[in-house]
Design a protein around this nucleic acid. Structure first.
Lengths: 341, 341
DNA sequence: ATTAAAACTTGCCGCGCGTAAAATTTTATG
DNA sequence: CATAAAATTTTACGCGCGGCAAGTTTTAAT
C-alpha cells in the first residue's frame, strides 16, 4: 500500500509525476486524457486510495453530478421499488443520486426542493404529491433546476412527464372483468391525493359505456396516505349499505383494494372467481404485496422498468444539452390475472 | 423582496451592515451572537433569501451537520417506516440526514459506507444487512466515523447498538399462543439474513421448554429478501408434508407470515382462532401490512418509536462529546392480538 | 464614571479544487 | 523528417467560507 496519506490532488499528482490540472481533468472524464496517462493515474489510484474532496469539487464545478430523487411517500412499497430502480440507473450513469420522501406532506415537499436547490443538482426526478403539491413552489424550482416529473403529472411543469396510461389501465381491466363476469363497480377515494385517480375513473366510465354498461362509482371518504385503512373502513360501510350493485368491485388502486379485501374478510364474504365466492375484487398498480393478499389480487401492472428507464434517459439527455420541448410519455399496463377476480 | 441577488456571505453581511465573521458565527450557532444582531440577521434573511453555500461550509468545517442513515432494504415497509422516523428526528435536531438503502446487497452496503465517508458525516445510523455484511469494511468505517447500529447487531462494532429484545418477542407470543390453544411450531428461514432470527428461535425454544412443550422448528429453504415468496412456497411445502405437528404456526417474522398466509389460502385452510378454523398463524414485527392481511395477523409490535428515539439520542450525545462505553439497548415488544391467532 | 468582559470589526490566510490562457511537449500525418 | 494538431504542463487566479489575531466598540457590572 501507500506510505504517507495523500491529502489532496496536488500531492496525488506529484506522486504520479503529472500535473494537477491533468488529474483534475481525469476525474472529470477519464476519457479526456491520453490512455497512457490514464493508466498511470488508475494504477496510482490502486496504490494510494486517494479520492477528490467532494465539497471542493462541487463548490467550483458549475454542474455537480448530484441527482435528486423525490417521491411522495417512501413507506409505500410501490414508490420504494421505483425509487430503487431509478437510483440504480443513476449510479450506473455515473451520477450520485440522493433519495428524498415528502412523507405525504406538501410543506416537506417544498422543504426538500428548497434544500435540494442548495445542492446544485445536475437534475431532479420528482414524483410530486399531486393535488396537494404547492404548484407555485414547484414551478419556481423547475425553472431553476432541470426536473423530470414522473408518476403524477403537473400540467406543463418540468422538462417532461413520464407515467402510466391510466385510462388504459382501467379500460383493460374493465374489459377483462366484463368478459368474465358481471360488470364492475368502481371504488375510489372522494379526494384522492393522486391525480392519476381521475384518469382511472374516466377510463372506467368510458370503458363501461363502450361495453354498454352503466358506470357505478362508490366514493370513500377520508384523506391522506393511510389508504388501506380507508379502503377497509369505507369499503366496509359501502358493503353494509349495499352500495355495490354488482358482485364485482374495481378499486382505483391496489392499496385501496388491499384494505377492501380486509373489509370483505371481516364480513365473511368469500372473494374470488370460484363459484362459491360472492364477490370479485380487482386493483390497479400491481403493488408488491398484491401477490400475497388472500386471495391474491387481480390487477394491472405498472411498467416500473420502462418508467424508470425513460425518466432517467430524458433527464440525462437534457443534461447533455438536448433541448427538445416538453413531452409526456405514458406506458401501458399489463393485466395480472390472479384469484381475486 | 430583494433587488439584486446576493452571491455570498460577504455581500449578505454588507447589506445588513455587519461583518462577515459575525454572520458566519450566526450560521454556526444563532445563540452565539447578541440578540439584537440576531434579529437583524434574521430579518435580512426574510428579505433576501440568502443561504450559505453548503459545499464551501463543509469544506472548511471539521464537522459537518450531515448524518447518514443506512438501512438494508428500503422496499421493506418496516425499514421505510423506521427510517422515516429517524430522518425526522435528525431534521428536528438541526442535522441533514441522507437516506441510503443497501438493497439487500453487501457490496452495495460497502459502497454506501465508502461514499458516505467522503461526505465527512457527523455521524451515521446503520442498520446492517446482518450475516451478509462484510464485517471488515464496516469495522474500518466505524473506526473513522461515529456510528450507531440499530435493528441488527454486529458484535462490538460502533458506538452502541439499539434494537429489540427478540427473545422476549418470541417468549411473549409463545406464552400467549399456549394459553389460548395448542403450542406453536416455529417457522423460519434456514439461512436468515438477519441475526435477530437466531434470537427469536432461541426465545421460542426457551419459552416452549419453560412451559413444558417440545419445540418444533420447521425451516424454509431460500435466500435473499423475497421473504413473502419464500414463506408462501416453502410454507406450502411444509403444509403438504405435514411438518407442522400442531395447529399453530409462529413465524419468525411478519413477512414470512404474510407469505405463509397465502400458502394457507391456496390450500383452502381457514386461518384464525374461530372454531371453524383449522390453523392459527402468528408473526413478529407488526409489519405495516399485518393489519390488513386476511385474517389480520396476530404479532408482536416492534417499538419503532423508542428505537428511533434512542438511536438518535445516543448518536447526538456522542457527537457532543459524551464518551460512554459501548452499550446495547433493547426494547420490549407488545402483543398485538388480531384474528389470525 | 470606571472597568472588565463580551461582542464585534478588520485583515489575512488557508481549504481543495475548477478553470482559463499561454507555453510546451507529444502524437499523428504526410 | 518536417509540420500541424492534439494533449499536456505551467502559471495564475478564483470560489465561498472557516478561523485566527489584533484592535475597536458595546454591554454590563462595580
Amino acid at each position: 500500500m501507500s506510505e504517507a496519506k495523500i491529502r489532496n490532488m496536488e500531492e496525488f499528482a506529484a506522486v504520479i509525476g503529472i500535473s494537477r490540472p491533468t488529474v483534475s481533468k481525469f476525474f472529470h472524464d477519464p476519457e479526456s486524457v491520453r490512455p497512457s496517462t490514464r493508466q498511470r493515474i488508475e494504477a496510482a489510484l490502486e496504490e494510494h486510495d486517494y479520492r477528490p474532496n467532494i465539497y471542493a469539487m462541487n463548490q467550483n464545478r458549475k454542474l455537480t453530478k448530484n441527482v435528486g430523487i423525490v417521491v411522495p411517500y417512501l413507506a409505500d412499497p410501490f414508490f420504494a421499488e421505483i425509487a430503487r430502480t431509478i437510483e440504480q440507473r443513476c449510479i450506473d450513469a455515473g451520477y450520485r443520486p440522493t433519495l428524498y420522501s415528502a412523507h405525504g406532506n406538501p410543506a416537506l415537499e417544498v422543504d426538500i426542493l428548497d434544500s435540494l436547490r442548495s445542492l446544485k443538482p445536475a437534475g431532479v426526478l420528482l414524483a410530486p404529491l399531486g393535488r396537494a403539491s404547492e404548484r407555485g413552489a414547484i414551478e419556481k424550482f423547475c425553472d431553476d433546476v432541470p426536473t423530470v416529473l414522473f408518476d403524477s403529472n403537473i400540467q406543463d411543469l418540468g422538462l417532461a412527464f413520464v407515467g402510466s396510461d391510466n385510462p388504459q389501465f382501467s379500460m383493460l381491466i374493465v374489459d377483462y372483468l366484463c368478459r368474465t363476469g358481471e360488470p364492475p363497480c368502481f371504488f375510489e377515494m372522494r379526494n384522492p391525493s393522486n391525480p392519476n385517480a381521475n384518469k382511472r375513473r374516466q377510463g372506467y366510465i368510458k370503458a363501461m359505456e363502450q361495453l354498454g354498461h352503466e358506470p357505478i362509482i362508490v366514493k370513500a371518504e377520508g384523506q391522506g396516505w393511510a389508504i388501506e385503512e380507508i379502503g377497509r373502513v369505507e369499503g366496509g360501510k359501502a358493503l353494509e349499505r349495499q352500495q355495490f350493485s354488482t358482485n364485482t368491485v374495481l378499486c382505483s388502486n391496489d392499496r385501496l383494494a388491499i384494505g377492501f379485501l380486509t373489509a370483505c374478510y371481516e364480513r365473511r364474504l368469500r372473494v374470488g372467481r370460484d363459484p362459491d365466492c360472492t364477490i370479485r375484487v380487482a386493483g390497479q398498480d400491481d403493488h408488491p404485496f398484491s401477490r400475497f393478499t388472500c386471495p391474491p389480487l387481480t390487477t394491472i401492472a405498472q411498467d416500473y422498468d420502462s418508467v424508470s428507464r425513460c425518466v432517467v434517459e430524458i433527464l440525462f439527455r437534457s443534461i447533455e444539452g438536448d433541448d427538445t420541448p416538453r413531452e409526456e410519455t405514458l406506458f401501458e399496463g399489463k393485466l395480472i390475472m390472479r384469484a381475486s377476480a
